[in-house]
Design a protein around this nucleic acid. Structure first.
Lengths: 125, 125
DNA sequence: ATATACTATATGCACAATGCACATAGAGGA
DNA sequence: TCCTCTATGTGCATTGTGCATATAGTATAT
């Protein structure tokens, strides 16, 4: 079914700013620019094909606007200029706050999955 | 901070149609109408104050529009008429599909939380 | 020289999901 | 008559996201 093979991967990450959260974690380890962050995101399940680059850049701009990251232009001998992002203290505390949210989300999901499995076992479904 | 005490509970459920998923599970057990579903939702973490009733009703109407549930009006001796919802076969298979999505979301969240904890332990944060 | 591919960043438009506020109305009690 | 509780819904705006497109520098091959 087209839904299962196409929509499922896209649905998984649809969790209110999940991309932003992943970016904050990646940038906690080391600074980076948009195009290279694309690669780092694969580890988090964002395949190059799924993730549309436009969203990534827009999210990054938004994060700087909100003070979570700061950027500087870096001129390289090879390739176009890169806007390199660095996480700020505000970004770090925001990340810490998001981790609380994620922990709670995880619990909610766990609860729902268990409810469903119980229904299955009870032959109610 | 107002963010921590006010926004966190709202953010937790912001996972693309989480309300719809919960409703599908509740309606799998037994049919029900909007106002009473409000009560059942507390178990899933939707407190009466947080959850705005309008959204609930709109989601239910949308679910019927998409064939996930069907409704009949029930006239009661006490109180206004109730629109009682029942899950359909389409709704059941949709629910099964959502459980796959939730399982994957859970894994993504787990991955991110572990990444963060590793950063903490490594004193990188 | 020219074309193509790769690197790199960004915007315009549209849609779906959600939140806030408000509208409607029946029933029961003070 | 007024208020509260039950019960269902709509209007409007905002946010998050996706798709398509624009822009431009660099490298490599033809």
């Amino acid at each position: 079914m087209s839904k299962s093979i196409k929509c499922l991967p896209n649905k998984i990450h649809k969790m209110d700013r999940f991309l932003e959260i992943c970016l904050l974690i990646i940038l906690s380890k080391e600074s980076g620019y948009g195009y290279i962050l694309l690669g780092h995101l694969e580890e988090y399940g964002f395949s190059q094909e799924e993730l549309n680059v436009g969203s990534l850049y827009r999210v990054l701009r938004g994060m700087e606007k909100n003070g979570l990251v700061s950027s500087v232009w870096e001129t390289s001998s090879q390739g176009p200029d890169k806007r390199v992002y660095e996480i700020t203290e505000v970004g770090k505390s925001e990340l810490s706050w998001w981790m609380e949210v994620l922990a709670e989300r995880r619990e909610k999901i766990k609860f729902v999955l268990e409810k469903y499995n119980y229904l299955k076992e009870s032959k109610l479904l």
